[in-house]
Simulated assay, not measured.
Amino acid sequence: DIDLACLIYTSGSTGEPKGVMSTHANMAFAASSIIQYLENVPEDIIINVLPLSFDYGLYQLLMAFKFGGTLVLERSFTYPAAVLKRIEQERVTGLPGVPTLFAVLLQMDLTKFDLSSLRYLTNTAAALPVEHIQRLRDAFPWARLYSMYGLTECKRTLYLPPEELERRPGSVGIAIPGTEVWIEDENGNQLEPGEVGELVVRGSHVMQGYWNNPKATAEGYHPGRYPAERLLYTGDLFKMDEEGFLYFVARKDDIIKSRGEKVAPKEVEGALYRLPGIVEAAVIGVPDELLGEAVKAFVVCGEGHQLTEKDVLRHCAQHLEDFMMPKYVEFRDSLPKTSSGKIQAAALKN
């Protein structure tokens, strides 16, 4: 159980990839917990278009073995119509995706395909924009949509029960079964609902650290209350509502400090996604002599849509406070992504 099972490398979307050391016990527990809340059964048929080098893709394989289901492997989502046809042919019940995959789906005419076999859709790697959640629910009203949060260092951390989507579409949920999470400030104090701090994770899914990188291991993994127990300090900022549901705010390193205020890129991106025609968006901070950092937005427009910088700024002015307003808007044909489809904000800073 405590032997090393594999090394899974982080995506590198926020820095250099690091090899996360996973034991057999870590992986078996994580797979079992996810199977429990997804309510997987042997009759489930999962389609996987994600790389098996990506933990989200790899665990589709491990979970299918564990619950005795069927896994349909596709090389990628490069040809979405072909994948949807495969879903129709194989009577797929589970579609694991990432925000960029679902953004492509939402641009397609889905009525051309019989997707009625789908029982659930899952999203992780990055938070789904609320606008996309609402449109996915409209497109697949019969399927359960799981909005989730995780990181390679503990596989999966949070999931939002689908019945809660209507009430709190911006939340990524509660701790997965058999685990515990809380939010701390910089002094290690546990925070109350509504306060923003770092998410801390406790459970048997917390991996062993980084391969040949004791410095990074010591920064991210701290001793727990019991011998040999590790706590994971995620480096991600969250807040919690009064009922214990969690909301992702930003990576600690991604917070933009502008005009003496702290700007969470996700909040600006969420506003951008509400503008019809924008299919991908990313926000970073760039040096500015007057502001300290200025907000810069990168956007990709969908086919048949033409937007100008004025259109984007006018829309943002209606949805954002002044200090959150982008100073720059750059239109691109596409945004840099990892092999798993996650937008690489770090690459936009270069």
Rank of each mutant, 00 (worst) to 15 (best):
L105A: 08
L110M: 03
L101H: 13
T100H: 06
A139Y: 02
R137C: 14
F113Q: 03
F140P: 03
A127L: 13
L136S: 03
G97D: 06
P96S: 10
Q134V: 15
Q107H: 03
V130W: 05
T124R: 02
R135A: 02
D109P: 07
L95K: 12
D138V: 15
L110C: 00
F113V: 12
L115D: 08
D138A: 15
E131S: 15
L106G: 09
L106K: 09
A127M: 09
F102S: 09
T111P: 05
R135P: 05
N123S: 12
L121T: 09
A103I: 07
T122A: 08
Y120V: 07
S117Q: 12
L106P: 04
L121D: 02
V130H: 06
Q107V: 11
F113Y: 11
Y120L: 14
L121W: 00
L101I: 15
R135L: 06
I133Q: 04
F102D: 03
Q134G: 15
R135V: 08
T124E: 01
R119G: 08
S116R: 12
L105W: 08
K112W: 00
M108A: 09
L110P: 07
D138S: 15
T122G: 03
P129A: 10
Q134T: 14
S116G: 15
V130C: 13
F113D: 13
D138R: 14
L128D: 01
L128H: 00
P141F: 08
A126N: 11
I133R: 01
V104T: 13
P99A: 11
P141T: 01
L110K: 01
F102C: 01
E131N: 14
H132V: 06
V130R: 12
A139T: 03
A126H: 00
T124F: 07
A103V: 11
H132N: 09
L115H: 07
A103R: 05
G97Q: 08
P96I: 06
F113L: 10
L110E: 08
L136I: 08
V130D: 13
Q134P: 00
T122Q: 09
A139E: 11
L110A: 09
L128C: 01
L128V: 05
L118D: 09
A125F: 08
T100S: 06
L121Q: 01
E131W: 14
V98F: 05
I133N: 09
F140S: 10
P129M: 09
P141A: 10
A103F: 04
T124L: 04
Y120I: 06
T124V: 04
G97H: 05
V98W: 05
T100E: 04
L110N: 05
R137I: 08
I133M: 03
R137K: 14
I133V: 13
I133E: 10
S117A: 11
M108P: 02
F102A: 04
Y120M: 13
L118S: 12
V98N: 02
L121V: 11
T100K: 02
V130S: 14
D114P: 02
R137P: 00
T122Y: 00
L136Y: 02
D114L: 13
L121H: 06
L106M: 00
